[in-house]
């Protein structure tokens, strides 16, 4: 195993952001179900626990969103390059990637996209993450912040149309995120092995697909 066969794909702040998000969003989803359907679901002992946990997890996810935002826009400074698909990607890349997912994958062909630190996402990922990170997550987070502070932000809530409308926005956006989550987790297992895509998100290092695999030493010190 040589260092050159691996690429350092996910820097530390991004890995922290991702796993805080993962843990936080799952917690938010589970507590959210109990908050909306307390007469059917009682996962966490007591309604108040669910509410407080939902609030805390919401704040953690919002903070980690801010970490993501600041890292990409001020430290790595490649946010737009990573998340905004180019004209070429929209015109050809999307189709090529869709073809892979829907056809060539089943025939056993390799993924046409090879991630690099400057171009991590395939065109479909780019479009999906663009919508999720720049539209869905901010709106979900903002509606959540408003819902935590109903009384102090009453005027703002009324401008949106009222508490019930805010509630509906928050709920439907959360359903969208939940729907994305299933797809996201499933597609993450589409690598050479089920964990081939998940491992880099945890360790930061992605193995080159043409190399021999399963020899990664997780505990080895590595630069950041």
């Amino acid at each position: 195993m040589s260092d050159t066969s691996r690429i350092y794909l996910q820097p530390t702040p991004i890995r922290i952001w991702h796993w805080l998000n993962a843990f936080g969003i799952v917690t938010l989803g589970l507590t959210g179900i109990q908050i909306r359907f307390p007469d059917y679901v009682n996962i966490f002992a007591g309604y108040k626990t669910a509410i407080l946990l939902h609030n805390v997890a919401g704040v953690v996810v919002a903070a980690s969103f801010a970490l993501w935002f600041f890292y990409y826009s001020f430290v790595a400074r490649n946010m737009l390059k990573l998340y905004v698909p180019s004209k070429d990607e929209v015109q050809k890349g999307l189709l090529r990637q869709a073809k892979f997912y829907l056809l060539t994958y089943f025939l056993g062909r390799p993924n046409p996209h090879h991630p690099t630190p400057q171009n991590k996402f395939n065109p479909m990922q780019k479009s999906a993450y663009l919508a999720i990170m720049f539209l869905l997550m901010p709106l979900l987070g903002l509606s959540g912040i408003l819902l935590i502070n109903i009384e102090p932000m009453r005027n703002l809530i009324l401008m949106i149309g009222g508490l019930k409308i805010l509630m509906a926005i928050h709920y439907l956006l959360a359903c969208c995120l939940c729907a994305f989550l299933f797809t996201h987790v499933y597609l993450a297992t589409l690598g050479r092995t089920a964990f081939a895509y998940i491992k880099p998100m945890w360790t930061g290092w992605e193995e080159n697909e043409s190399e021999q695999h399963e020899t990664l030493d997780l505990t080895a010190p590595r630069p950041n």
């Binding site: 908050i35 909306r36 359907f37 019930k164 409308i165 439907l172 959360a174």
Partner: peptide
């Protein structure tokens, strides 16, 4: 529109859409 009691005034229509 400005009244919602979490856990007890959810709308059935929204449940289905979600």
């Amino acid at each position: 529109p400005d009244f919602y009691m979490v856990g007890s005034t959810r709308s059935k229509a929204l449940n289905y859409i979600g």
